[in-house]
């Protein structure tokens, strides 16, 4: 029973080269930040960084599940905007009502996606594009196109502004917990393996007798729920429901997933690497802010986007190089 499965780093790297690449990039960037900027490693920067990025981490992980089946969910940004408004309306009843309420709203959008994809057989790109527009419109309708202030008297804002045990922000604690649960689901349950198998070959999965429809529906419900949670964090952290937020979040999420080495065609992916991918992209912004703070060079927000795009390109290029050595599914007789 012993040893055969002891963690072998070399084997891990050779089998997961893309995750390896993303870890290295993260380490390098942190090291760069620590050396160059005085307050980079300070408690304030770390907490605010994690607090802000918890939203992106959670929608990226939801997106990761969808992409592993070979699908895509374009609606996450709009759904997060919608649910942030829902959370703001529910905030007087406290976080214990607002959080489940907003997540449920997100799951409802996910249910629409799941219905379109699984039952109506509409391609995910189209189905979730429709939901994206619908949720965006819906957010504007229920808010009257205004930001909706939360009830500061209730415990709702604790989620986005206070720390658990005075160590970590509640947002990152909640997100961390969900991420761990989802990691277990992916790695240790039939449902998770079915998600991967679908992306690797949907017909084959059906013929193997796997519950393909159930798993496909699950990923869209999950992604909707994750977007709902992101909406709660958004409303709680900024003290208001934000119907106009969330534009382009789906693309950031897809970028994080891809940087994490998950195949866009499905069948291969990892929760941890996606989290690292999200952190990596967030960190680029963080570092650019510090750079601006130093005052030697100043990047406008527009230039920051350009730089982020360039960085994304570099990471993906690096991955492709690392991957060139391995060849899955391309064996010659």
């Amino acid at each position: 029973m012993l040893d055969t499965n002891a963690f072998d780093l070399r084997k891990y790297i050779s089998r997961n080269p893309q995750s390896f690449a993303v870890w290295i990039a993260l380490a390098l960037l942190i090291l760069f930040g620590l050396i160059r900027y005085e307050n980079f490693g300070g408690a304030y920067n770390i907490t605010s960084f994690l607090n802000y990025n918890s939203m992106f981490i959670i929608i990226s992980v939801g997106m990761c599940f969808v992409i592993m089946t070979g699908g895509i969910d374009l609606s996450v940004g709009s759904v997060a905007a919608f649910t942030s408004v829902v959370a703001a309306y529910l905030s007087p009843y406290g976080i214990e009502v607002a959080l489940p309420g907003a997540v449920l709203a997100g799951v409802c959008f996910g249910a629409i996606n799941a219905f379109s994809v699984v039952i109506l057989r509409i391609p995910p790109f189209i189905a979730t594009l429709a939901t994206m527009l619908g949720a965006k419109g819906g957010a504007l309708v229920i808010s009257g196109a205004q930001t909706i202030s939360v009830d500061w008297g209730s415990n709702f804002t604790k989620m986005g502004m206070e720390k658990a045990l005075n160590i970590l922000p509640w947002s990152i604690v909640v997100v961390g917990f969900v991420v761990i649960v989802l990691w277990v689901v992916l790695e240790k349950t039939t449902l998770g393996r079915t998600v991967l198998a679908i992306g690797g070959g949907e017909d084959a999965s059906v013929l193997m007798g796997l519950k393909v429809n159930r798993a496909t529906a699950f990923v869209y419900l999950l992604s909707g729920g994750c977007a709902g949670l992101a909406g709660v964090i958004l409303a709680s952290g900024f003290g208001a429901g934000q119907p106009l937020e969330g534009i382009g979040w789906e693309l950031s999420a897809i970028a994080s997933v891809v940087v994490g080495g998950t195949l866009l065609t499905g069948g291969f992916g990892s929760v941890t690497a996606t989290v690292v991918g999200a952190l990596l992209l967030g960190l680029v912004f963080n570092i650019l802010n510090f750079e601006n703070g130093k005052g030697t060079i100043s990047f406008s927000a527009y230039w920051q986007m350009v730089i982020r795009g360039g960085f994304l390109f570099a990471v993906i290029l690096f991955q492709a190089k690392v991957n060139a050595g391995r060849s899955v599914g391309k064996t010659q007789s």
Partner: peptide
Amino acid sequence: IYQELNLVPLRSVTENVMMGYE
């Protein structure tokens, strides 16, 4: 066992054998 291979090449051998009956 179908004529055209109906397995998932990206996943491990174990998964392909055990899938659904782990």
